[in-house]
Nucleic acid binder design. Structure first.
Lengths: 231, 231
DNA sequence: TAGATTGTTAATCGATTAACAATC
DNA sequence: TAGATTGTTAATCGATTAACAATC
């Protein structure tokens, strides 16, 4: 499809691996905070909630950053994963829709110990515009394109009501934002090359309900049984 | 592992399918609101953002609810998927941690047009306790076990700070809650049989950053290129 | 050298997809 | 009957996992 420019080492980290790298990174940062210098795949996997074979396979896609017989140097691995994820640079984030959720995200300080900067808050409600949220002035959504340009926004977070989400997404994309995190309960239509990730509370609850029902009609009392097994 | 009780039709809906059923359900409800009576796999798939082969395959795991040459009756399929997901009953949900995010969730009304009921809000901060949020009195976290029992809570939502999350999870599980939705940035340790789902803003942003970086160093200017391709 | 642990292989499993026979 | 569309088959693809040779 696109021409492949010459690159060091063949890329192509599996999506499933990419999705776990942030989990490993957080576990490593926790170890680092405790002053741990070195960790085995077994221990890191356990901290990340995966099995060690999967962890080693995942890390092998980044390179050979461990030492046989020893393990992985925590600080070095933190750096390598951060670099791979693109966290050694700073990404400007704009949040559109400053309701309860938008405010919660704006105030959520620690984005995995840096890599992101909330650069702008946008809302369609004139009463909201001008208010200060998390030390930022809320700007009117009409200024989206201008803000994206001036703040070099590359990630757009959509926390608008469902009806407004597609319109905002299209404007983000046309303004040059190719990464979107969508909290609105709609399927966004975007052109190829734009990356949309979706976070949806109802969907998560419904998936939980499915399994809960299974437990409930599968055996007598699922929840209590699980409780008893608690170690 | 567990004894299999006699059941109609062999169950075992793939996890990937379960995760998509809520998406189909929402698309169907939108169609229903517009008064659409019947829909083809092609159209429903398009509304849900998947391809039609996948949709048909997914639905085939529930049964044969379509009519060849015609499509699916919207209302009937809404009912079948709702039933499969366990939404024909009401699930009581407790939210632990009434910060910005907890409040946002408590105030988030439409949980996919019913199936869930926010039954309790819990917080460890005495200043928070007794306040009214979304028409519910915030109760002290010490009452967790009592509240789970009296309200028959089966789903626990954790929006506490990271340090408190594991403790709250353990208490939920011991109280009989076997379904947990975790917004805290930690890996929860729970016994087998307990279902934990995780929603994590930083992880989503980091995955977006990975792809954004790819675009950025893959070709000249990824975002603008994507913008130009917009139809 | 002996013990520990990585990085990789290969087998297995599950998910996706195209194609089409069945059937309305 | 002709046209449309489902439900299923089978091929393909990607992810997981156990096992172990390589090597610190």
């Amino acid at each position: 499809m696109t021409s492949r420019p010459p690159r060091p080492r063949e890329r192509g980290i599996p999506e499933a691996t990419v999705a776990r790298l942030p989990v490993y990174l957080r576990a490593l940062q926790t170890l680092q905070d405790r002053g741990t210098l070195t960790v085995s795949s077994e221990d890191l996997a356990s901290a990340a909630g995966v099995n060690s074979a999967k962890l080693r396979k995942d890390l092998s896609h980044l390179g050979s950053y461990g030492t046989r017989g020893v393990g992985y140097e925590v600080e070095y691995l933190v750096y390598q994963i951060s670099r791979e994820l693109g966290l050694t640079q700073d990404w400007a984030v704009a949040i559109a829709g400053i309701g309860n959720l938008g405010r919660a995200l704006a105030n959520y300080g620690g984005f995995g110990t840096r890599g992101f900067r909330i650069a702008a808050l946008l809302d369609a409600d004139p009463a909201m515009v001008g208010q200060s949220v998390a030390s930022l002035d809320v700007r009117h959504i009409d200024n989206l394109e201008e803000v994206v340009r001036s703040e070099r926004v590359s990630i757009g977070v959509i926390t608008t009501p469902a009806v407004s989400a597609q319109g905002v997404a299209t404007r983000f994309v046309e303004a040059g934002v190719a990464s979107i995190l969508n909290f609105a309960p709609v399927v966004l239509n975007v052109p190829d090359g734009v990356d949309v990730r979706k976070v949806d509370l109802s969907i998560e609850l419904q998936i939980l309900a499915f399994h809960a029902q299974r437990r409930a009609d599968g055996d007598g009392r699922g929840a209590e049984r699980a409780g008893l097994e608690l170690t």
